[in-house]
Structure formats: structure tokens, C-alpha cells
């Protein structure tokens, strides 16, 4: 049986997943090496069996993100934070210095252009509770590896993935780490 990979996007923009696709034709090689478990690529709702690598895009902004992250931690041998939002909270974490109440009021109640005569804030039971701030993944569970970048370059993702699958310690080349 081939090793399995799982991926997910929490409070992210899917840009990191786009960057995964940027490995181009190497994706065929990847398909030979691994099977995909839970991932937006195949739309599995939960992880089915133990995975060798779990890749997380985005930080945690609501309770569902936390549950997904727990599921990944529980079922993956190696957990990788992919991209700046997973590593530091990124753009969604800009709200961290503003009280949650103020954020929600500005978003749904008191802002020019908002039409909300009954003053409703989205409150369906299906909607997960938003957290008081956005957490980087390593503050919620233990993370084994980090791939920085917004988004990380496809080469860095490829290098880390192949290293982990071959049992080597991943090293990201300096060229893939500097952006200026």
C-alpha cells in the first residue's frame, strides 16, 4: 500500500493549494508515489486511514478549523504548516488586535453600505463559532515542519514532500526561502 497524504485549507485563501498544483507534471510522479486521503482535491470529508503526511494551509479562525486540525494531528505521522497563514496567522490575524465584538459589529451591523434592518448577526447552528483571535497552527497542535511563503514556491513543497516520503530530513534551498 502506498503512503497517504492529506491536505486541508483552514483560514487560508487556497493560494497554497494552488501552489501545490504548481508542481506541474510532477503531480503524475506524486500520484505514483502516494495516495491522496482527505483533501480538497478529492473532497473526502474525513481522513480514512493513517497518513504519512498532513499538509495544513491557513491558521485557525473558528472552532471547525480546530477540530479539523485535531483530526489531522491524530491521524498524520508528519504535520506540515504550509504558508504564512498556517505559520503566523497571516492576513486573517490582522483582526487579532481588534475586539471580536467590534469586528462582528463592523462586518454585519454598523458600517456604511450594510443593509441589515433586523440587525441579525449570522447565527445558524451549522455555522461554527468564531474564535476570539486567529491562531497559528503550532499554537493549537504540535507542528513538525514549516514551509514559509505566501504562497510557498512549488519547488519548496516538492522538496519537502519527497524528502518526507523518502524518510530524509527536509531542507529547503535558500533560493526558495528568499523573496526579494
Amino acid at each position: 500500500m502506498k503512503p497517504r497524504i492529506a491536505t486541508c485549507s483552514l483560514a487560508g485563501c487556497f493560494g497554497c493549494h494552488m501552489s501545490i498544483l504548481d508542481i506541474d507534471e510532477r503531480i503524475l510522479k506524486l500520484a505514483e508515489l502516494v495516495d491522496f486521503d482527505r483533501s480538497p482535491i478529492n473532497d473526502f470529508k474525513h481522513i480514512t486511514t493513517r497518513c504519512a503526511v498532513g499538509i495544513i494551509e491557513g491558521g485557525c479562525c473558528n472552532e471547525e478549523n480546530v477540530h479539523v486540525l485535531h483530526e489531522f494531528r491524530e491521524n498524520c505521522d508528519n504535520l506540515v504548516s504550509l504558508g504564512d497563514c498556517a505559520i503566523s496567522g497571516g492576513i486573517p490575524a490582522l483582526r487579532n488586535n481588534i475586539p471580536l465584538e467590534e469586528c462582528l459589529e463592523t462586518a454585519y451591523l454598523n458600517n456604511p453600505g450594510i443593509y441589515n434592518p433586523s440587525g441579525i448577526v449570522p447565527n445558524d447552528e451549522e455555522i461554527p463559532m468564531i474564535l476570539k483571535k486567529v491562531y497559528p497552527c503550532h499554537e493549537v497542535v504540535k507542528i513538525d515542519y514549516y514551509i514559509p511563503g505566501c504562497p510557498p514556491p512549488a519547488d519548496a513543497i516538492w522538496d519537502v514532500l519527497t524528502a518526507l516520503l523518502e524518510g530524509r530530513a527536509p531542507v529547503i534551498a535558500y533560493d526558495s526561502l528568499k523573496y526579494d
Binding site: 468564531i130 474564535l131 503550532h138 504540535k142
Partner: peptide, 18 residues
């Protein structure tokens, strides 16, 4: 592999109140 200083219950309290 969970971080012991992260507490989901207290992280959603503000939201629940709102």
C-alpha cells in the same frame, strides 16, 4: 500532539456571548 495552553472553550466564549 496537542498544545496544552490552547483551550477551545475559552477561545469561543466571546463569540458565544455575542
Amino acid at each position: 500532539g496537542l498544545q496544552p495552553d490552547f483551550d477551545l472553550t475559552s477561545a469561543v466564549v466571546d463569540s458565544e456571548l455575542f
